[in-house]
Design a protein around this nucleic acid. Structure first.
Lengths: 229, 229
DNA sequence: AAAACATCTATTGTATACAATAAAGCACCT
DNA sequence: AGGTGCTTTATTGTATACAATAGATGTTTT
């Protein structure tokens, strides 16, 4: 089998390992496995219906993604995120995804632009009714749009590092707390980003993306870190 | 055993796994395992004197650090780095380590400043004789200085991500190609960085660090990517 | 009674045996 | 002769058994 350049560095676990990774990760994201909780390999093995070997594989991957901490001879613990951690995550994501936008401006193809535009259009429809926005569709299209941008940036390492930031529980939960107005502005950013990319203006694209991420951070703060608490 | 906050996310492999990781990584860095080369678990096992299980652990960690690519059901391959990859590495390192410098400016302790100053002084001695600089000492002190800065930034995630950038073969080899003048300027940057941190000037510290990393990138380019090939 | 030590137990780390998979080689068919 | 499909084989993936480790518990000693 040929090793394609675009696969480089992509962590691909095999059946049982991938299954375990997905299950444990999901439990962490939805809170079933609480921050600080100790994860015993045996328990996870029976939970996932596989042996301890792929569980260990999965735990190492989750540790690389900072979902858990593995302490030798002691086990794995679910990580928790202080307000400071969260600020870091958004700041770094702003820098790196801004850089991705800048790179993409001079590399993106027509096809990729079309995909991003289609995603923005889909979001437009999903949020058309302010009373009951289609959050599922929003999340899916949002994900596609950002993934396409990262792909257009065409940097394996950038992609890998960004992957470690955008999959965080904290980031995933953010969008679910958006108000209709927030959703509107978010997609306005998307549209402006596409315009900047079409114009081939890397500086504009980067600035728009940085604003987009920082706006998201403030939404998160208001929702989960109210001033008096 | 208590889980200390500063350990969070730190990948700590146990005896056999750590041994395997270190051995394989070293072979990649010094070129004994060439880019593109396929790594067979059985061979690595006998090379490292352990069984396949810790080898697999080590390979997954090496994949997380982008030293190798693991393709399911096919094996691991040593990654290679195109000029574009290398540019990415340095650009991202500039952004992230610049951010670390900025954060450190308002958080660094006197002790940490002392350590950085001592490192800079040690480098000063090591490069005092332009005819035969003490590269070993330079590398060790340089490493201590940068590690101390990252620690002073006090961000687990930032530390983790930077760790993935500064340990690259490409980065490690760069310093060995420095001319005496390059070494001098490099340590001038270090001293200026310390001054900026002492002054608590995050913007200055960040700018100095960005310059420092970009200067290193140009040195690398001149040494390994001459204009005509 | 408190502290230090030894033992015990729960859990992770490692090795090995077996299963699944995919590439390679060969035969067979067209 | 060339290509397609099967068989073979080399290699990775998974499970399980065993070893090592660290924490807990209970005992002993001062």
């Amino acid at each position: 089998m040929l090793i394609h350049a675009h696969m480089k560095g992509k962590r691909v676990l095999s059946k049982a390992s991938a299954k375990a990774y997905a299950i444990i990760r999901q439990r962490i994201i939805d809170g079933a496995l609480a921050p600080g909780e100790r994860l015993k390999e045996e328990d996870l093995a029976s939970l996932c219906g596989v042996s301890r070997t792929p569980i260990r594989d999965a735990l190492r991957s989750l540790a690389a993604d900072l979902f858990v901490t593995v302490v030798p001879n002691h086990g794995a613990y679910v990580n928790d995120w202080s307000p400071d951690d969260v600020e870091d995550i958004f700041t770094m994501r702003g820098m790196l995804e801004g850089y991705a936008a800048q790179r993409a401006a001079s590399r993106i193809t027509e096809e990729e632009l079309d995909i991003m535009q289609a995603s923005a259009d889909a979001i437009e429809v999903a949020i058309a009714n302010p009373d009951e926005p289609d959050v599922e569709t929003f999340l899916a299209a949002n994900r596609t749009l950002h993934e396409t941008l990262r792909q257009a940036a065409n940097s394996t390492r950038l992609n890998t590092m960004l992957g470690q930031l955008v999959e965080m529980p904290v980031v995933i939960r953010t969008a679910t707390s958006y108000t209709p107005g927030d959703l509107r502005r978010s997609n306005d950013h998307h549209q402006e980003l596409i315009d900047a990319l079409r114009a081939g203006d890397g500086t504009w694209a980067e600035a728009t993306m940085v604003a987009h991420i920082h706006a998201a951070y403030q939404k998160y703060r208001r929702a989960y870190q109210p001033p008096e608490g």
